Simulated scan of single mutants.
Amino acid sequence: MAKLPEEVRSSLRFFAFYLANGTLDMELLEDIDYRPALVDFGSTLEMVFTIYTNVLEIDEDGLVDDGHAQYRVAQWIRRYCDPSYVVDPPFEEWETRLIGP
């Protein structure tokens, strides 16, 4: 059985660290303590990881570029915590599509 490449596992680990530490995209989420919102309802945290993994880019050598994925998650969190925030560009269906049962 194949395993996720080391680069992907590392990217997921750092993403989870920044998310839990409250340091995900400090510029966009400045002064917003989003962490309580993520644990109030499981679906909020589920969507965060859905967007991250759907947008995550991995090249043919297995190298990860997750900057855009983290930014899109930060935009989603900002909109969730601040309904007046306008996500630009708007999310496309594939970015927020839940996969699996």
Rank of each mutant, 00 (worst) to 15 (best):
E7I: 00
Y80E: 14
P5C: 03
I77A: 02
N54D: 01
T23W: 02
G62Q: 08
M1T: 14
C81D: 06
F14H: 03
R97L: 12
D31G: 13
L19P: 14
V55N: 06
L98G: 03
A20S: 13
I77P: 08
A74K: 04
R79E: 06
R79I: 00
P83I: 03
V48I: 07
S10K: 12
E92D: 09
F15L: 00
A16P: 04
S43H: 12
F91W: 04
G62C: 09
D59Y: 08
E27I: 04
V48E: 02
L45F: 04
R79V: 01
D66I: 04
E60F: 03
V86E: 14
V64D: 10
V8W: 02
E7T: 13
R9D: 08
V48C: 13
G67H: 11
E93S: 13
E93V: 12
H68I: 07
N54F: 02
N21M: 03
P5E: 04
N54G: 02
C81S: 13
I99Q: 15
T44S: 13
L24K: 03
C81W: 06
E57M: 10
W76T: 01
E27C: 02
S43Q: 11
L28D: 10
E92F: 03
D33R: 09
F49A: 01
S10N: 12
N21E: 11
F14S: 09
W76D: 00
F14Y: 07
R13W: 01
E93Y: 07
T44V: 13
Y34E: 11
M26I: 09
A2W: 04
E30M: 08
E30R: 15
L12R: 11
A37M: 07
F49T: 09
N54V: 02
A2N: 11
D88M: 08
L19G: 09
S11G: 04
D82V: 15
R13G: 02
D31T: 10
S84M: 04
L98P: 06
V73C: 00
D40L: 09
D25F: 01
Y85M: 07
A69Q: 00
P5F: 00
L29Q: 05
G62R: 08
F41E: 15
M47Y: 03
H68T: 10
F14D: 05
T23P: 04
A74H: 06
I58G: 01
D31I: 00
P90A: 14
Y80C: 13
D40H: 10
D40A: 10
E6P: 10
I77L: 12
D65I: 01
Q75E: 15
I51G: 03
D82A: 14
P101K: 11
M26F: 01
F14C: 01
V8H: 08
L4P: 14
V64K: 11
I32L: 10
E27A: 12
L28F: 09
T44L: 00
D65Y: 10
D33T: 11
M26H: 06
